[in-house]
C-alpha cells in the first residue's frame, strides 16, 4: 500500500515536472523534420536546435520563415515561438531558409552544408522565375546542376533521355525557343561533359558564382509609394537599398549603399532613409502595411550588420571554420588523387 502511494506520488511529481510541449515541423530545402518544442521556448531555442540538427554553423544567413495573411514573416530570436502570429494547429510549420545572402559566395560560404542549402534555394528561385536568368546562363547553370547531381558524365551510363524527368530550365526560357526536350538535353549535356572532375560541392559553388551575378539574386522586393503616391519597388539586399520602377526589377533607378546611409526609421507606415551626405535628399515612402515595414526594417538591420561585419577581420569562429574547410578540401583532393 505504502509502495503504491509512493509510486503514485513519484509518478504525479514526475508528470508535474514534464514541460508542456507542442510539435513543430521544419521544412528545409531538402528535408522535413519534427521537433517537440517547449511552450516557453523562444525563437532562438528552436533555431539553434534546427542548426545543431543540420550541423550548420554559418547560422547568420538563415532564419525560420512562416506565412501570415499572405505575407512572409521570420521568427524572432528573442520572442517566444508561440507569441508569434503563427497558425497554432500542430505541427506548427516553419521553413528553414536563407534570409540574408553573401556579397561573394566563394569567399563567405564556408561549410558544404551552407553552400548546398544556398544552391538548392537559389536553383529553385531561378526555376520558379523569382530570379530572372537569361537563356544562355540558364543552360550553363543547368549543366552545373546536373554535374552536382550525377557526378562526371559517362556516355555509357547517361544515355539519351536521362534528363527527361529533371526540371532544369525556367519555363520562360523553354518557351523562347522552338526546341524539343531532346535538343535541350543535348545542349545541357554538351556543357555537363565539360565539367568533368568537379565534385558536388565545386559544381554547386560554380552554380552560385554564376547565379550571384544575376540582377535579382538576393534582392527582397517590396511595393512602396513615394510621397507623390507613385508606385515603386524597394529592393533590400547585401549591398544596400535600391529603388526600382515596378516595370523593371533588374536595374534600380537609385541605390543607397549601406555605408552611405545615416539612418533608417519608420513611424506608422512612413519610412525614412536619411543619407550620410546631407546634400542628398531624405527619401520617404509608404509601404502597404505596418507588418511589411517591420520586415523591411528587420532585413535592413540584418543586411547592414553583415555588411559591416564583412569589412572587419573574421571572428575566431569563422577563422577556425575556414581553416577546417581548407583542411577538409585538401584531404578530399589527396583522396581523389590517390584514387
Amino acid at each position: 500500500m505504502a509502495g503504491a502511494i509512493a509510486s503514485r506520488m513519484s509518478f504525479t511529481s514526475l508528470k508535474r515536472k514534464q514541460p508542456k510541449t507542442f510539435t513543430v515541423r521544419i521544412i528545409t530545402m531538402d528535408a522535413e523534420m519534427e521537433f517537440n518544442c517547449e511552450v516557453k521556448w523562444k525563437g532562438k531555442d528552436l533555431f539553434d536546435l534546427v542548426c545543431r540538427t543540420l550541423g550548420l554553423r554559418e547560422t547568420w544567413f538563415f532564419g525560420l520563415q512562416y506565412t501570415v495573411k499572405d505575407s512572409v514573416a521570420w521568427l524572432k530570436m528573442d520572442k517566444k515561438v508561440l507569441d508569434h502570429d503563427v497558425p497554432k494547429d500542430e505541427p506548427v510549420t516553419f521553413h528553414f531558409l536563407a534570409k540574408f545572402y553573401p556579397e561573394n559566395v566563394e569567399e563567405e560560404l564556408v561549410q558544404d552544408i551552407t553552400q548546398h542549402l544556398f544552391f538548392l534555394q537559389v536553383k529553385k528561385q531561378i526555376l520558379d522565375e523569382k530570379i530572372y536568368c537569361p537563356p544562355e546562363a540558364s543552360v550553363l547553370l543547368a549543366s552545373y546542376a546536373v554535374q552536382a547531381k550525377y557526378g562526371d558524365y559517362d556516355p555509357s551510363v547517361h544515355k539519351r533521355g536521362f534528363l527527361a524527368e529533371e526540371e532544369l530550365l525556367p519555363k520562360r526560357v523553354i518557351n523562347l525557343y522552338q526546341m524539343t526536350p531532346e535538343m535541350w538535353e543535348e545542349r545541357i549535356t554538351a556543357w555537363y561533359a565539360e565539367h568533368r572532375g568537379r565534385m558536388r560541392d565545386e559544381a554547386e559553388m560554380e552554380y552560385l558564382k554564376i547565379a550571384q551575378d544575376t540582377e535579382m539574386y538576393g534582392v527582397n522586393y517590396f511595393l512602396i509609394r513615394n510621397k507623390k503616391g507613385t508606385e515603386l519597388l524597394l529592393g533590400v539586399d547585401a549591398l544596400g537599398l535600391h529603388i526600382y520602377d515596378p516595370e523593371n526589377k533588374l536595374t534600380p533607378k537609385t541605390s543607397f549603399p549601406w555605408n552611405e546611409i545615416r539612418n533608417i526609421s519608420y513611424s506608422d507606415k512612413e519610412f525614412t532613409i536619411k543619407p550620410l551626405d546631407k546634400k542628398i535628399d531624405v527619401f520617404k515612402f509608404n509601404s502597404s502595411k505596418l507588418r511589411v515595414n517591420k520586415l523591411i526594417l528587420q532585413l535592413c538591420i540584418g543586411n547592414h550588420d553583415l555588411f559591416m561585419r564583412r569589412r572587419k577581420a573574421d571572428s575566431l569562429e569563422v577563422q577556425q571554420m575556414k581553416a577546417q574547410a581548407r583542411e577538409e578540401k585538401a584531404r578530399k583532393q589527396m583522396e581523389r588523387q590517390r584514387l
Binding site: 544562355e136 546562363a137 550553363l140 525557343y177 526546341m179 545542349r187 556543357w191 565539360e194 565539367h195 572532375g197
Partner: peptide, 27 residues
C-alpha cells in the same frame, strides 16, 4: 584528364549562338 578550361563569357556566347537559330520570332 584535367578539366577543360572554360571562360564564363565564352561559354555564354557559345550557348547563345547555339540557341539563336531556334528562337521564336516573338522571342
Amino acid at each position: 584528364n584535367p578539366p577543360k578550361f572554360l571562360t564564363y563569357h565564352k561559354a555564354l556566347a557559345e550557348i547563345r549562338n547555339s540557341l539563336q537559330p531556334f528562337a521564336n520570332s516573338s522571342g
